[in-house]
């Protein structure tokens, strides 16, 4: 499948979600489907699917302790160990995982190799690291901010986050920095896939679709807040209804809200079946989450089984005379 088809399919799928939601909510009797049934169903698929996938990974054992070591091992006491990149304790592993999960340590190493007059030149290249951090953190903050729709009273911390995110007080309501960051970062990640030849070669619809979906989620959210205003009191009534299991559909919320919900529901339902599962996988990846202590502490393989090892006895039986002639000791003369 070429780039055009991958893109076409991804874009088509996102547009279809938007269209179905737009058309659907015009019929007021269908509003409960988009406002109640779809989000519930999506959330259940997400939860069950996510747990299922993680449990499924967990069903396969880790037969060998084979972390990729990225620093000095623990050996002689006077040689300084790199406790984070080559951990030998649980604490070290936790440190390594925190760096990996929260700071994208490995991505930070990224370099770009190019050839210049017959030599390979390695340039520092932190854009992918910056882009990935901006994307994930703005997404996280936006998700946390949305908790004010699901909690009553709104906790102090979430109100505070809201204030900080909108601290520049540009426009009314105040422009959120994370909104800009998210749209910027998603656009960067998307454009990068299109214009960098290597990225275009390796990208699949599986890569374009979630980016376009998240882009649309961001845009529909921004539209709702600044341009096509929705009845925020009605929205909160609906979201509180969802979390308290007394779902209601207030009058006159506005179609754009249902589009936003449909897109998010799609993302949630798509999540467990996709590469987005890296969110769970990164914690379970044996390449990083094990200590490099194989020589100090035995690791047990649950399916280890005895194998046929060519025995010394057979070896000596075959070569006994030659060994004796060469003065190599033998067991049996």
């Amino acid at each position: 499948m070429g780039v055009k088809l991958s893109l076409g399919v991804s874009l088509g799928a996102v547009l279809a979600v938007i269209l179905v939601a737009l058309v659907g909510v015009q019929v007021s009797s269908l509003q409960p489907i988009f406002g109640i049934f779809v989000p519930y169903a999506a959330f259940v698929i997400f939860l069950v699917g996510f747990v299922y996938r993680v449990v499924d990974w967990g069903r396969s054992p880790v037969p060998f302790r084979i972390p990729t070591t990225c620093g000095q091992q623990k050996s002689l006491p006077w040689i300084k160990q790199n406790k984070l990149e080559c951990p030998s304790s649980t604490l070290g592993v936790i440190g390594r995982m925190i760096l990996e999960v929260c700071a994208f340590r490995s991505l930070f190493r990224h370099t770009k190799a190019e050839m210049a007059s017959g030599n390979i030149v390695y340039g520092g290249s932190k854009w992918i690291w910056v882009g990935a951090l901006a994307f994930h953190y703005s997404f996280l903050i936006i998700a946390v901010r949305h908790l004010r729709l699901f909690l009553e009273p709104v906790p102090f911390l979430i109100n505070g986050l809201d204030l900080v995110d909108g601290m520049f007080q540009i426009g009314a309501p105040a422009l959120y920095l994370t909104d800009l960051l998210l749209i910027g970062a998603v656009s960067y990640l998307f454009v990068r896939r299109l214009i960098v030849p290597k990225m275009r070669y390796i990208s699949l619809a599986n890569d374009y679709f979630p980016l376009l979906l998240i882009f649309s989620i961001g845009i529909s959210g921004i539209l709702m807040r600044y341009f096509i205003r929705v009845d925020i009191v009605g929205v909160k009534e609906l979201t509180m209804g969802l979390v308290t299991f007394h779902p209601v559909i207030p009058e006159g919320i506005g179609a754009i809200f249902f589009v936003h919900v449909a897109l998010i529901s799609t993302l949630l339902a798509y999540f467990p079946f996709s590469k987005l599962m890296h969110a769970g996988g990164v914690f379970l990846s044996p390449g990083r989450n094990l200590a490099n202590t194989n020589r100090a502490k035995m690791h047990v393989n649950p399916w280890n089984y005895p194998v046929d090892i060519h025995s010394y006895e057979d070896y000596e039986n075959e070569f006994r005379e030659k060994m004796k002639n060469a003065g190599i000791p033998v067991e049996r003369e």
Partner: peptide, 19 residues
Amino acid sequence: LDKYRTFKIYMDICVRCGA
């Protein structure tokens, strides 16, 4: 796939970031 968690996870989680 049943014997190695590494294999299963590595088949599932690559995002093709290009690093």
